[in-house]
């Protein structure tokens, strides 16, 4: 039981990271990015290719994948989604759905359906806690990176000029535009940041779990869960939701874990769709 709690909490940090990009886009751009899970898996594959190709540790591949995914997000938002958003949210939603299908099948074509995994040197290490079980070092590192990412992102949104303009746009797009904020540019940066967090999330989940081209939709649902439980655009909420979702899943075991997660999600959607930590 103690071991399960430890695992659940450590998983929560990663889940918060999986969800944070989704919650940003939901809160700021007001778009449901149905390709978020696929972007996470895409990043995991990029990380795997770079780490094998250059002989780097998967953690160091982040130096390349994070800026790369930022650029992809920025271009995607500016070239495609901004224009569609003018026609309402549905066309953009369906385009991200199309993107998820394209990415998933392109990965399947290139990498086949076999399981892939990012290997690090401290894979099997763990810290014993006396009679209370053990803390796996890998999961601890991954959880801490997740929390650190959220912390940095929060700081960025609170303290920098770009961060403030992103929050202003999220609160009132017209007022922000009148104050001289370039709304479309801001959306591009927000999408870039969201995909940058997806890049980190991809490497993290790739280190703790095997991944296939089709695992993206599973992470999308986790991201949804985190968004819905935490509330749109709330980073603190995202973290708490990540822990709730991680614990619910670990306590349910391998068979019913996912099912419990889904049920928590549906109940939350029905009872409190604005999330536990809504503004």
């Amino acid at each position: 039981m103690a071991q399960q709690l430890i695992n659940g909490i450590l998983l929560g940090g990663v889940y918060a990271l999986v969800g944070v990009g989704m919650t940003m886009i939901f809160g700021i751009v007001q778009l449901t990015n149905l390709a978020h899970g696929e972007f996470i898996i895409l990043a995991a594959y990029l990380s795997s290719v770079i780490s094998v190709g250059l002989g780097l540790s998967p953690l160091l591949t982040l130096i390349i994948t994070v800026p790369l995914m930022f650029v992809i997000g920025y271009i995607l938002q500016n070239v495609l989604i901004n224009k569609l958003m003018e026609r309402g949210s549905e066309p953009a939603l369906l385009v991200t759905f199309g993107l998820s299908i394209i990415i998933q099948n392109a990965l399947l074509l290139i990498f086949s359906a076999d399981a892939n995994r990012l290997i690090v040197s401290f894979q099997a290490l763990s810290i014993p806690l006396g009679g209370m079980g053990r803390i796996p070092v890998l999961n601890l590192v991954v959880c801490l990176i997740g929390i650190a990412t959220l912390f940095v992102l929060n700081l960025f949104l609170k303290k920098t000029y770009i961060g403030r303009s992103i929050r202003a746009t999220s609160d009132d797009k017209v007022a922000a535009a009148l104050m001289g904020v370039n709304v479309k540019q801001t959306y591009g940066i927000a999408m870039g940041l969201a995909l940058a967090t997806a890049a980190i999330a991809g490497t993290m989940v790739g280190m703790i779990y095997p991944f296939y081209p089709s695992t993206g939709s599973g992470y999308l649902i986790i991201a949804f869960g985190v968004v819905v439980i935490g509330g749109m655009g709330s980073i603190t909420g995202t973290l708490v939701a990540g822990f709730i979702f991680g614990l619910a899943q670990v306590l349910g075991g391998s068979n019913y874990g996912l099912l419990i997660g889904y049920l928590v999600l549906i109940v939350m959607l029905a009872v409190r769709p604005q999330g536990l930590f809504a503004k």
Partner: peptide, 9 residues
């Protein structure tokens, strides 16, 4: 599926 996705977009 990739082509269908492109056509849809």
């Amino acid at each position: 599926m990739i082509i269908l996705g492109f056509i849809a977009i």
